[in-house]
């Protein structure tokens, strides 16, 4: 077992040849277009799944007083948008984070970012209970950033960090933060709110309560402009500096961006486990690590993954809903275990 363990904190060292199939086969662009088409079709379908029976015909009547039309505008469309925006944002965040930290198993949920954001929300609710959602969110963002930087400082202190140990440290650190949040939530009777932030769920997404996610969508789009810089930083400090990239600025700027996006998603939707971990890993396994190339595919796949999980969560116990976080958790958890086992067993 130990023979396959790399002293590098990055995860890709020991990959089977299978993982690099991407280089000689399909054109990445064609694949991306195909995925996008699939996403559009599934999105359209998802608009007409739910307890209230809404058909495309009802919507076309465009009658605002109509119950079906109102369900469509007030609930179905917001829900779909929230899914697409948060799914793509969290996947791209995970991709950027694993690139910057140079470890495939580091994502906002395994680096203490998400836990720190929820601690921030608890703190904000205790001391600024009456404040606007925007102020609370700002506090959550601040906590997420600090938490992420603490994690980074911990990792940088480790001399020869094993690929699995790094996310383990992050998960433990996140556990401590989460426990602190739970303690205060318990003390100040905020457990219910905390639960909503921990367990991502789209059933409460209504018009007027998800629009902050457009900010996240815009930020996700902006990351594309910095894709090359992120990749270069992921190649190593000296590599990046040699090419004139301001290493520290890109590293910390990128992590702050990821923290910001994660915190907003936690505020609006709640945390979606494994999303930022599984989707980027699967996409880069198929398409390589050049962010410029894989970023759009990651965004599309993330949105698609959450959408499918959400459809499952709505239909599996129809007419009741299972929180989408549980569905993602089961599916994502399994994929995560497979990924870890693969990275460990290769090289023997």
């Amino acid at each position: 077992m130990a023979a396959g363990v790399s002293t590098d904190i990055r995860g890709g060292m020991n990959r089977p040849p299978r993982a690099t199939r991407w280089a000689r086969t399909i054109d990445g662009r064609a694949l991306t277009v195909l995925a996008l088409a699939l996403l559009v079709i599934t999105s359209f379908g998802s608009l007409f799944i739910g307890v209230s029976d809404v058909t495309p015909l009802d919507v076309l009547r465009l009658d605002n007083s109509d119950h079906q039309t109102r369900v469509f505008i007030e609930s179905r469309v917001p829900r779909l948008m929230a899914i697409l925006l948060s799914g793509s944002a969290m996947s791209v965040s995970g991709l950027i984070m694993q690139t910057l930290v140079r470890n495939r198993f580091v994502a906002p949920s395994t680096a203490g970012t998400v836990s720190s954001a929820s601690l921030g929300l608890v703190v904000a609710s205790i001391w600024f209970g009456s404040a606007s959602i925007f102020l609370k969110m700002s506090i959550a963002v601040l906590f997420a950033m600090v938490g992420t930087l603490v994690f980074l400082a911990l990792v940088q202190r480790m001399k020869h960090a094993d690929i699995i140990v790094v996310p383990l440290i992050g998960i433990m650190f996140g556990g401590v933060v989460q426990a602190t949040a739970t303690f205060f939530a318990f003390k100040y009777d905020l457990l219910q709110s905390l639960n909503a932030w921990i367990n991502g769920d789209f059933s409460g997404t209504l018009r007027g309560r998800y629009e902050l996610l457009y900010l996240v969508g815009a930020l996700t789009a902006v990351t594309y402009l910095f894709a090359n810089r992120f990749t270069l930083v992921g190649m190593g400090r000296e590599f990046a500096i040699n090419l004139g990239v301001h290493f520290e600025r890109v590293l910390y700027g990128g992590l702050c961006l990821v923290s910001l996006v994660s915190a907003v998603v936690v505020v609006v939707v709640g945390s979606i486990p494994f999303l930022g971990l599984v989707v980027p890993n699967l996409v880069t396994m198929a398409m390589g690590d050049n962010l410029r190339r894989v970023l759009p595919a990651t965004a599309i796949s993330g949105a698609f993954f959450v959408l499918v999980c959400d459809i499952l969560s709505r239909t599996i116990r129809y007419p009741y809903e299972v929180p989408v976080g549980s569905i993602v958790g089961v599916g994502g958890g399994l994929v995560f275990i497979i990924l870890v086992l693969r990275s460990r067993s290769v090289g023997n």
Binding site: S6, D8, R10, T20, W22, N228, G236, L243, V245, R292
Partner: peptide, 27 residues
């Protein structure tokens, strides 16, 4: 060029060489 170059990043030779032009055209 340092010795301990990352090979863990899954990019192609061509993509790597293209990065050499980053100082000129930013990608």
């Amino acid at each position: 060029l340092r010795q301990e170059n990352q090979v863990a990043v899954r990019i192609t030779v061509r993509e790597l060489v293209e990065f050499g032009r980053f100082p000129y055209s930013g990608g």
